[in-house]
């Protein structure tokens, strides 16, 4: 189980994409500082191109920062690892495996004995409501079910942290809402760190215990809010009532204002480094 002292620390992180010529280099992130405590649900919002995916790729270890460092539980992140699970926008499941084999896949890579990995995979599939679909093939599932398998698969490796890059962008509004609620229940149940990227302000406010708003050119964190709509949902259980409450709506308008401001300012060209 996750140690309570697991803490993710992003320390003055910058990332510059080199581009083909030095004049085309893009500063995707500049001086990003963020600490995520164990059990936090952090949601990142921001105009397109502000570096959200870049930040998530750094956390996952798919890239290394140009400057600064990222540590998890005091250990520097040097590459991808089983302590950080990733759920992608498009599911990235393996079509030659059925649902339970996909869910077990990570444990198979880690040479966990068959009985144990089956038991853990089944437990996580039940957590996302797919206990009756073990033998189904991935391509016979709906998009929402595929994403739930993706979540179960990431959870089965028991990571300290779950990274999600717009996992619901391709889903319809109803499926989205039901998976939002499901994610909150999974979060409450597992008490892992969640880092979640979305374009929907409503989704961000509803899910996050902390919201970071990012701005482009260069990508950085401009606003940070502590939220408790998710805890209210977990206590009261009425998502619609929370999403239509006055403080939720007011918060939504505030955040929308910030993001629209960025989108308008972004009408120009990209920030480039002239070397």
């Amino acid at each position: 189980m996750t140690a309570p002292m697991e803490r993710l620390k992003i320390d003055k992180v910058s990332l510059t994409y080199p581009g083909l010529h030095s004049s085309e280099a893009v500063i995707a992130l500049k001086g990003v500082d963020l600490t995520i405590e164990s059990g936090e649900f952090v949601v990142a919002l921001g105009a397109s191109g502000c570096g959200k995916t870049t930040l998530l790729n750094l956390l996952a270890g798919f890239m290394s920062p140009t400057e600064g460092e990222i540590t998890l539980g005091g250990k520097r992140i040097r590459g991808p690892g089983a302590d950080r699970g990733v759920v992608f926008q498009k599911h990235a499941l393996l079509p030659w495996l059925n649902v339970i084999d996909n869910t077990e896949f990570g444990l198979r890579l880690q040479h966990v004995p068959k009985a144990e990995r089956h038991e853990r995979a089944a437990r996580n599939l039940a957590l996302v409501g797919l206990q009756d679909f073990h033998r189904h093939m991935i391509y016979h599932l709906s998009g929402g079910m595929q994403q739930r398998v993706g979540v179960a698969r990431a959870l089965t490796c028991d990571p300290a942290m779950l990274l999600m890059d717009e996992p619901m962008a391709a889903l319809d509004a109803l499926t989205r809402e039901s998976i939002q609620e499901l994610l909150l229940k999974v979060w409450e149940h597992t008490h892992k760190m969640f880092f979640f990227i979305t374009h929907s302000v409503e989704e961000a406010l509803f899910l996050g215990s902390r919201l970071i708003v990012m701005s482009p050119r260069p990508g950085r964190i401009t606003h940070m809010y502590d939220l408790d709509f998710n805890r209210r949902f977990l206590k009261e259980g009425n998502a619609r009532a929370i999403k239509s409450s006055p403080d939720f709506i007011q918060m939504r308008e505030t955040v929308l204002g910030i993001i629209y401001g960025d989108e308008l300012a972004a009408a120009g060209t990209q920030e480039v480094v002239h070397a």
Binding site: G85, Q110, R153
Partner: peptide, 8 residues
């Protein structure tokens, strides 16, 4: 990437 992030 998913496989690497599961310890592969």
């Amino acid at each position: 990437h998913a496989a690497y992030a599961m310890g592969g």
